[in-house]
Design a binder for these strands. Structure first.
Lengths: 348, 348
DNA sequence: CGCGGTTATGCAAAGGTTTGCAGCCGAAGA
DNA sequence: TCTTCGGCTGCAAACCTTTGCATAACCGCG
């Protein structure tokens, strides 16, 4: 039923190659011919068969996007942005979800590898060496992680964590806890490093709690630990954990920010809606999505088209740009001055 | 670089057609041969080229999933379920997001249509006639909407709305508001119909507020209207709106459930985390995703493979199953008995 | 009038796989 | 011994498009 290039050629009285060129290299065909062909194509409802095209060009015009968990509100904005940017460049995006599971992540990326032109690895939990191995199979851009030799787009959570700690120091807090993220997360490591440094510089004590599941549940589960640790402020791996923690603290009768200050990371939409509104480190997720798509597309427009021939795979990626996007601390209502010690916090 | 079927054939000393059959029709090849071929394939890292296969079979092994807004927590579980089910059947899912925009929805479905074997239309805002037109281009399964002649999987929000209203009636409420959903939403219509009927049957008055954006913002914006309307209970189109409304009411000094009872729909993860915990109609989103994928795959395994020949497109869909999935009311803390009139609600 | 140079088009190979058909071989039946 | 049949494999066409190369028409210039 669907019209092929041949039908269009017949209808417009030209050779199929002319039809092909009308679409893929319009400047090579006589304007007059072009309009005629275009008209016939339109008329017949012709759309080039992507599979056939892929077969010969070696380009599927699809890209894969692998995230840890679609249900985590951190990802959707990034996904949307990536999708939009890709569509803009006539690409489509496969989104896949690993459920925070390293093994699933590995499977998925292999399954995807063969039918996309490149893969965006967003907040991967895999080891660097695994990532490098994958990148030998298929062009990869890594989001939220630094991997030597691979193009990366990162959000400067180090800077963000530092700002957060400094904000807390400024409010007088000297005993601070960091709720760590999941094992294998680069972001979690960066935060830890930056937060430790900032705390040390400010003469504060930083207790590390983790690793944890980066969810509300994960945050809530730590409430008791936080209380017992006696800290007056907490920096959480992400907003979800921060929110969970606030719930958990509330259940224990501790109020935020009067008794404990809490800072999140990500600035998900939800963080504006909880009570208290969350102080958090805003990460430029949409920008990251767009940038990553651009880098990926750049990457394989550079690659020699018939790159099937040996070589070229691992070697020539000298354009391994690494982009660091800025974060910014958004102060809302979940942080406040350190409680005066000795004064009763629980009551009127 | 990637090994082709020919490489495997050479390595294992058989004809390419045998290799092909080893993968696509194993029972046709001698077990002995099969293991040898498989071994060679494994060895060379051979993976059938999906584009080439698609070219000849006419099946891409991709399906499209179009949703209104990935960022709405209602969708991710459905997406995950669909994706999992699809992967299970060796299909991949393109997720696309229309931003609640009818025009974008139409564009997207057309763009997708040509490169997938079928499309899942989830909570479409398009008109029925548009949907039918699309379904002439590509197999379609509709989620959360009833379209005559098309396979649909619906969640019984009518029943859900009825339960919710009856729950409120049971608590003594007689003046209830329904926060309507977005224009074009089938779910919104169903809810309205069922809620009206149930209210009438219970001798209650139901005010309709809407249509609205199905987001927290949309819900929050209605707080003032709700207060002025003097109702004692509200059924919201979804949890997001319910949560937004509760925030908004709070800002106006109205407490939930003491002053106003609020019921949501969807039972998103978040509804368990807000304070008060939300009473809501749980919808089986994951089941819907799985079912829809199965129906779609069923649909085009029925279709004659070389269905390029005319006919077959619109006609033979006599298996247009329509599945209705049950919903269930989950009573939590956002609903309570109707406030005693005349008693001061605002104070100690 | 012929020549070099554009410009527009046609030709045909190639890309990796599936699949109907035909052929081979050995075994069972006559 | 000769068919027949079934199981397995090979052959080659077909799927639709892109693209390097060849061809043809045309222009302007000498």
């Amino acid at each position: 039923m669907p019209a092929t290039i041949r039908d269009v050629a017949r209808a417009s009285g030209v050779h199929i190659s002319t039809v092909s060129r009308t679409f893929s290299a319009p400047h090579l065909v006589n304007p007059e011919t072009r309009v005629r062909v275009l008209a016939c194509a339109e008329d017949l409802g012709y759309r080039p068969n992507r599979a056939a095209r892929a077969l010969i060009t070696g380009r599927t015009h699809n890209i894969g996007l692998i995230v840890a968990d679609i249900a985590n509100p951190f990802f959707p904005p990034l996904i949307k942005a990536a999708e939009g940017q890709a569509r803009h460049r006539d690409y489509h995006v496969f989104v896949a979800d690993t459920n925070e599971d390293v093994a699933a992540e590995e499977d998925l990326v292999h399954a995807l590898a063969k039918q996309v032109d490149g893969v965006l690895l967003c907040s991967p939990r895999m080891s660097n060496s695994l990532i490098e191995q994958v990148s030998r199979e298929v062009p990869v851009v890594v989001i939220n992680r630094q991997v030597a030799g691979l193009p990366c787009v990162m959000m400067d959570v180090g800077q963000g964590a530092r700002s957060a700690i400094e904000h807390l120091l400024g409010l007088g807090h000297r005993r601070i806890a960091l709720l760590g993220g999941p094992r294998g997360s680069w972001t979690a490591r960066e935060m830890r490093r930056a937060a430790s440094a900032a705390a040390r510089a400010g003469g504060a004590e930083l207790s590390l709690l983790g690793p944890n599941q980066p969810t509300e549940t994960g945050g809530g589960a730590l409430a008791d630990q936080v209380r017992r640790s006696g800290v007056t402020a907490v920096l959480a791996y992400n907003d979800l954990m921060a929110i969970g923690l606030i719930e958990g603290l509330d259940a224990l009768g501790l109020r935020v920010p009067q008794d404990v200050s809490v800072v999140g990371v990500d600035d998900i939409a939800l963080s504006r809606l909880t009570r208290p509104k969350l102080t958090t480190v805003a990460t430029p997720t949409a920008a990251a999505g767009r940038t990553a798509v651009d880098m990926l597309l750049q990457l394989d427009s550079d690659a020699p088209r018939g790159a099937r021939g040996r070589g070229a795979a691992a070697g020539d990626r000298r354009t391994t740009a690494q982009v660091m996007l800025q974060t910014v601390l958004v102060v809302r209502d979940s942080t406040g001055p350190v409680p005066v010690p000795g004064r009763d916090c629980t009551g009127a």
